[in-house]
Computed example of a mutant assay.
Amino acid sequence: MGQFGVMIGQLVGFFIMLLVGYGCVRLRFYGKVALDGMCSLLLNVLIPVLVFSNAVDGTDRSHLEANWGVMLLTAVMYGLLIVTFWAFAHLLRLKGSRSHVFQASLIFGNAGFIGIPLIMALFPKEGAIYVALMSIIDQALLWTYGVWLCEPVQSQGGSDSQAKTDGITGGLHALGVRVLNLLRRFVNPAFIGVMIALALILLGAKVPQMILKPLHTIGNMATPMSLIYLGGLFALTKWWNVLRRYELYVGLVAKMVVFPLALYALLTQVVSISPVPLPITHDMILVITVIAGLPTMTTIAMFTGRKDNMPEYAVGFVLVSTLFSLCSLALVSAIVF
């Protein structure tokens, strides 16, 4: 009941923030121009600062060495999520941007805005270290593979025809463009913040508290502003059309109930039968189980909205998954805790 109460309290708070954002737009306190500004502020300032300040606060090389199993589990979780929902997208015969946004919505859970306060509340002693180490893998994948999934899918017919026409030169040019586009995805504020934080931890450099304190204050604005932004987005987009999509129901049950329970059983079994000691504790497995069952990351809606790539579809996944998590997280926690 303790974990259930924590989850209900967090989700009720998030729901209130969504209502505030929805109400502000409906009452015409602000509109799309203001929401676009909030989106830019979140993506370029608040989220990167949140990630950086949480990663470097109280974390040093000894913590990294003692708890690097969390990073291993996070990488394993994302690897399984990517393979699982790539396969689901193909089995459900989803194509183009619909397939990619479907995958992004189910691979990336709301670790930043729901996961961090939830883990800190459930594991007050080691929660900060777990969050810092998980964020390195989480943000690196979100701002590279996640950004790519949220970009509009373009037809490859023209590129193939041009390559055939131009021969080797055209093929090399196309390869160069793809490599350059891939590298550009790494040049974003959040990923840079993660890399700077990791470098400071490895070098043993400490960020003074007089600097960390205002950074934490700024970063803590990310959660309420993101949910207020999302609430406003609900008021401006026809998100309810996603309720007609059959993949929504299959995907949410698979991602938020079946997958975390299967992952918990798999990891527990592997640790118990491993012939050599693994740097993985039971608390780490519980943490990654909760993270695996989180609702869709709000940043996915921001990414798709920025590119005008099925934003209603992504917003619908965020809203419905967040509401569904009230039941799914309670069910998962009742089984594993």
Rank of each mutant, 00 (worst) to 15 (best):
A55R: 02
E151N: 09
M71I: 10
I300E: 10
G232E: 01
H216S: 07
H63C: 12
D308Y: 05
A292P: 00
L141T: 07
M225E: 02
H63W: 11
Q3G: 14
T304Q: 08
A222Q: 00
V6Q: 13
G13L: 01
L18N: 01
L203R: 08
M120Q: 08
G157M: 12
L331V: 06
G79R: 02
V332N: 03
F52N: 05
L92H: 00
A199M: 11
L215T: 11
G31C: 13
L180Q: 12
G219F: 04
G37E: 06
G158F: 10
F29E: 09
M38I: 12
G69P: 11
F123W: 08
A163E: 03
G112H: 04
G232M: 06
C39Y: 08
E312P: 06
L64A: 08
M310T: 04
L175P: 04
V49W: 04
V257E: 08
F259V: 07
K213R: 14
Y246G: 14
V276N: 12
M297N: 05
G23H: 02
F14Q: 09
P279A: 12
V332I: 05
G171F: 10
T84F: 09
N220S: 07
K213T: 15
E247L: 07
F102Q: 00
S272F: 08
F29L: 15
R26I: 11
R98N: 04
R61T: 10
S159T: 13
L106N: 01
M256F: 03
A87P: 00
N241W: 15
I168M: 09
N44T: 02
Y229T: 00
G21N: 02
G146V: 06
R244Q: 09
C150E: 01
M210L: 15
G251D: 01
M310P: 00
V332M: 04
T281D: 03
H216D: 03
L331C: 06
V56A: 04
G115K: 06
L198M: 05
M225C: 01
L294Q: 00
D166M: 05
R178W: 06
C24W: 10
I116G: 00
I8L: 15
I273R: 13
S105Q: 02
N44L: 03
F123A: 04
G251K: 03
N67A: 13
N181M: 08
L331I: 09
S226P: 14
V194K: 01
